[in-house]
Amino acid sequence: MNAFLAAVLTATAPVVLAALGGLLCSVSGVFNMALEGQLLWGAFTAVLFSHMTGSAWLGVAGAVLATTLYALLLSVPAVTFRADPVVVAVGTNLLALGLTAFLMRQVFGSGGTFSSPDLSGLPTLAELGLDLPVLGPQSPLVPAAFLLVAWAAWWLGRTRSGLRLRGIGQHAEAAESIGLRVPAYRHAAVLGAGALCGLGGAQLALGNVTLFSEGMSAGRGWVAVVAVMLAGARPWLGLAACLLFGAAEALGFRLQGLGLPQQAADAAPYLITLLALVVAAATRRKVRTV
């Protein structure tokens, strides 16, 4: 059971980080569908910087920085120029796919998957001397992801900037008329989401495994988008949605070991996510019509 719980947390952590970023954007009034590409970019840059410096932590820092910069590709068009964020996101997701595959060949000299003994992954908590049940075999980024959710819930509800961000998302014109600089908050939210995706990507490539492979975000960013849609402005609900996804993925792996075809395991997280979306929408409707 502990092993299963650990697998759930491992699968969930990158999605939680991306979803938290998406949620901040959604609260500020920007629909962020670029999470998939940013997770992938984060994973790639984490491996790149870890390989270059030999330090997993520098890899994490590099990924956070590089993905924050990458998020400018969404924030400048969507916030400054008010382009359709959905269209921009389609572009940046495609770009991330091409850019990571391209740079992989240029830098590492081969496509497909890159792993190397020189590549250092993140240490586990156990290795750091914290041999807790379930959390022991995880990287420190896993508990960090869940603590960040708690922090976001507190920050949105209890601080000055959190209140302002909520206001901006509800009625941008009203926020402007009391002198809030709406674009600044939105840029901050989108770039913050980039940083969180960088962290998520780093966990994916240096925590869950220690390698980079093409397209390794594998739809997690889209699951995060769905989690944001389910959560509205409530971080805890977003976390629950992500855990559901993580459980589906972990269960899929388990069942694959028991002879379920790999394709079914691949499909399960998507179908379960969609199912959750349907159930949530249907109950919301029922409550309304009663």
Binding site: L73, P77, V87, V88, V90, G91, T92, N93, L94, L95, A96, L97, G98, L99, A101, F102, R105
Partner: peptide, 12 residues
């Protein structure tokens, strides 16, 4: 993959 990069940039 350079062409994928071009496509992504075109959309943005």
């Amino acid at each position: 993959q350079l062409t994928q990069i071009v496509q992504g940039l075109i959309i943005v």
